[in-house]
Simulated assay, not measured.
Amino acid sequence: MLTAPEVDRILDRLGPDPLRPRTDGMLAHRRISGSRTAIGALLMDQSVLAGVGNVYRAELLFRHRVSPFRPGRAVDAELWARMWADLVVLMRAGVRMGRIVTTRPEDRTRRRGAVVREDAHYVYRRTGLPCRICGTGVRTEPMVGRNLHWCPACQAA
């Protein structure tokens, strides 16, 4: 059992949560923009941003064509604002649907009806398969203890 002050101390260590209404995503950017650490690692750091797991990390970076190896300080406020807004939409949709779907209908093999598992993601768990956008083989490499998935062509910068 934790006391209220103990719970508050734990919560104070967490970054902003995209699922919480009226959360200021720019709080995360302040932590990101001051860091030399790769954005792919920062997105997994719960003290920077709460609730983003491996799937959302890979997919968010792909959707914004950001290399997971880019230093946090190279992610400007405008780019982060777009990423944050997208993350809020994606994560809320995931809660509503009970599953994570990050692809846009035009990038799926089936454009109508229920999204099949093979069409749900751009890069996550698609190692060696062709990128849905450019055809380059999706790559995987460990980063902060988890497999990172990305397209080396679409996410070169």
Rank of each mutant, 00 (worst) to 15 (best):
2 L>N: 08
2 L>Q: 08
6 E>P: 00
8 D>H: 11
9 R>Y: 05
10 I>S: 09
11 L>F: 09
12 D>P: 05
14 L>N: 05
14 L>I: 05
14 L>D: 08
19 L>T: 00
20 R>L: 13
21 P>Q: 02
22 R>P: 07
24 D>N: 12
25 G>I: 08
26 M>A: 12
29 H>E: 13
33 S>E: 11
35 S>G: 06
36 R>I: 04
37 T>I: 13
37 T>L: 09
38 A>N: 13
39 I>K: 01
41 A>L: 06
41 A>E: 15
41 A>H: 08
42 L>E: 10
43 L>C: 05
44 M>R: 15
47 S>D: 15
50 A>D: 00
51 G>A: 10
52 V>K: 05
52 V>Q: 11
53 G>H: 04
53 G>S: 05
54 N>K: 07
59 E>A: 06
60 L>D: 04
60 L>M: 08
65 R>Q: 02
67 S>L: 07
68 P>C: 11
70 R>Y: 09
71 P>I: 06
72 G>P: 10
77 A>E: 15
79 L>E: 12
79 L>D: 08
80 W>Y: 11
81 A>P: 09
81 A>R: 15
81 A>Y: 07
83 M>W: 10
86 D>R: 04
87 L>S: 09
87 L>R: 04
88 V>M: 00
90 L>D: 04
93 A>Y: 03
94 G>C: 01
95 V>Q: 00
96 R>H: 03
96 R>V: 00
96 R>Q: 03
98 G>S: 10
99 R>P: 00
100 I>H: 03
100 I>T: 09
101 V>E: 02
105 P>V: 03
106 E>A: 03
108 R>C: 02
108 R>N: 01
109 T>H: 13
110 R>A: 03
112 R>W: 04
114 A>L: 04
120 A>H: 04
121 H>K: 10
123 V>Y: 03
125 R>P: 07
126 R>T: 03
131 C>Y: 01
137 G>P: 14
137 G>Q: 12
138 V>R: 10
141 E>M: 07
141 E>W: 09
143 M>A: 05
143 M>F: 11
143 M>Y: 04
144 V>P: 06
144 V>S: 13
144 V>N: 11
145 G>W: 11
149 H>D: 03
150 W>E: 01
150 W>N: 02
156 A>R: 08
156 A>F: 01
